[in-house]
Design a protein around this nucleic acid. Sequence first.
RNA 1: GAGAUUGUAGCUCAGUUGGUUAGAGCAUCAGAUUGUGGUUCUGAGGGUCGUGGGUUCGAACCCCAUCAGUCUCCCCA
Length: 463
Amino acid sequence: MQKPSIPQGTRDFSPAEVRKRQYILGTLRTIFELYGFQPLETPSMEYLTTLTGKYGEEGDRLIFKILNNGLHEKNEAGKAKLNEEWNTLLSKPYSTPAVTERALRYDLTIPFARYVVMHQNDLAFPFRRYQMQPVWRADRPQKGRYREFWQCDADVVGSVSLINEAELLCIYQGAFQQLLLPVCIKINSRKLLAALSELCGMPEKMMDITIALDKLDKIGWVGVANELKERGIAEEGIWQIERVINVTGNNEEKLAAYTDIMQHSPSGIAGINEISKTLAYYQSLASAEWQGQIMVDISLARGLNYYTGVIVEVVCTHPKVKMGSIGGGGRYDDLTGLFGLKGLSGVGVSFGIDRIYDVIEELNLFPEQLATGSVAMLVNFGGDNELYALQLLRQLRTAGIAAELFPDSVKFDKQMKYANKRGFAYVLLPGDEEREKGLISMKNYATGEQKMVSIDDCVTQLK
RNA sequence: GAGAUUGUAGCUCAGUUGGUUAGAGCAUCAGAUUGUGGUUCUGAGGGUCGUGGGUUCGAACCCCAUCAGUCUCCCCA
């Protein structure tokens, strides 16, 4: 007999975990709907050609590929070709259509772009959608990183207004407010990062500067300066970057200082305007009760290289929590251009629900009542009592009370132990005496108190 | 792609310099108790010590290989 196990980087979600996850997903869904976003689902698999080349060289390697079916059914000519391609395949990191032409979804953004292009005639732009589905990556799993995990995205395409950015900030605020998580939303613009590399006189080094800068809160300025040096940035450039990093103050003060430093850079000024306009819209739309702060942070970079405008990232500020970002997003111009639909700009945010789950769990902020299933269990006393129990069960369910009958007429204490483990609020005892009198004994399982009541009273009390 | 570390009962783990028949707790099942759970008590079942070689009179323990898990770096969510 083989020992059962599940593939590396995948997880089972037990009932209590599913409930907690659904609590998070449900909260997000309610918010998305409140802001007028529409639900979208796309297939678990896409054509490999849809996905390759969209996530960079590293990304291509991490796409889960699906072996073609019917490989064994090929005719002789097919077999020869397959043999040849198989050998090529083994010597190279990528695949060939003879062996694989489908792959598991790597994220939700590219399938969304594909969907928008395919359905452009049916959609009303600006189109806002939210999507909550699993994605797969053939990465080496480690703490908090899985090969199968869920993403929760909300995006708007077909509008360049910064009102969208402001609305997405509000979605973050509203969602984390409801989930009781204290957060800080960092905001930056890719245009500012571009301006920064201009300031160094090395616009072509933007990626290097961005990657190094992103590590600021992890390795500190000295570490970043070293990395910049290694990546070939001149002393003069590093000095310029340090000058910008050293700017402190509230958002207005920071933006004013950046304006001063970058006054000769058109993209710098554009980035600053973008951020301040977004914040202005946000002020008008924001609710006074939201606790989370929004902070301009020029060291914020975000990994994906398709962002072109405002970028944001959410971190939990609770002192007990040592966790990276729990959400992020930004604007990407021309995402659909890859599939032939030019000039459509989009902006979106993503919630890292596995991390959000871990944080809520650590802070013990899941609502208590999530853990319950059925309210009551009926003990099975067998014989005529079984039929009596079934009638009662029907009445309870008709009244909307979640209840279940122990299906086997086994020893009493076994049924009671089962009830205890399941954590029912009440156990109902339809035995000989109750049946003859047309009553029911109900036992409160928390207090141990038990009484015999009419069936109507029982239904009323459980409601 | 690089590195560290761990594989012993369903689960969590002991197991001494290599030495009889490999242990504990939890879980399961049975009984004390055929209409009263959580706390008790008694007993039982359950292991090819990840796999394959090697060293040895003798290997869970030492050596080699291999597979798998976990973690770190890279990168990312």
